[in-house]
Amino acid sequence: MLTDEQRAVYSRLADVLIPSAEGMPSASEADVPTKWINDALGYRPDLVPAFLQALEIGADGEAEAAVVRINSTDSVAFDALGVLTSGSYFLNPAVKELIGYPGQVPSPAYDDTATYIDMLAAVVERGPIFRPTVT
C-alpha cells in the first residue's frame, strides 16, 4: 500500500500521463491514484519495485518535468508507471463506458456464413492454389 506521501507524488505524475482532455477524465478524476492503483498493484506485484522507483525519481519538482526525468533516467521504472497507470484507468467501469469498451463479456458465437458466402464464390472460382504432391 502506498504512503500518503507516495500517493500525493503519484497523483501529480498520473495526471501528466492521463490529463483531462478529449472529453475524458484525468487519472485523478477517474480515481486512479486513490482507488484503482491499489487494485493494479495487487494484480502486478512484480511491478511494484519499479513503480516505487519511479515515484522516488519523480518526487521533486514540477510534475511534467518529473515524468520526463523518469523516462530519460530509468526506462524500466517508466514502463511500470505507464502500464500501471493505464491499466488502473481502464479498470474503472466509468472509463470503459466512456470509451465504448464493454470489457471481456460473453458474446456467444453465431453462424454468420450467410453474410459472406457470396463473396467466397469468387475465391472458389479462382481455383486451386496449391502445388500437389510429386509422385
Partner: peptide, 24 residues
C-alpha cells in the same frame, strides 16, 4: 482491449503515448 500492447514505453517521447495523445 484498450491496454493492448501498452508496454515498452521507456525511452520514447512521453507525449507519443501519454498526455492528450493517450486519449486520442
Amino acid at each position: 482491449g484498450p491496454l493492448g500492447m501498452r508496454s515498452g514505453y521507456g525511452g520514447r517521447p512521453v507525449d507519443e503515448s501519454f498526455g492528450v495523445n493517450f486519449h486520442k
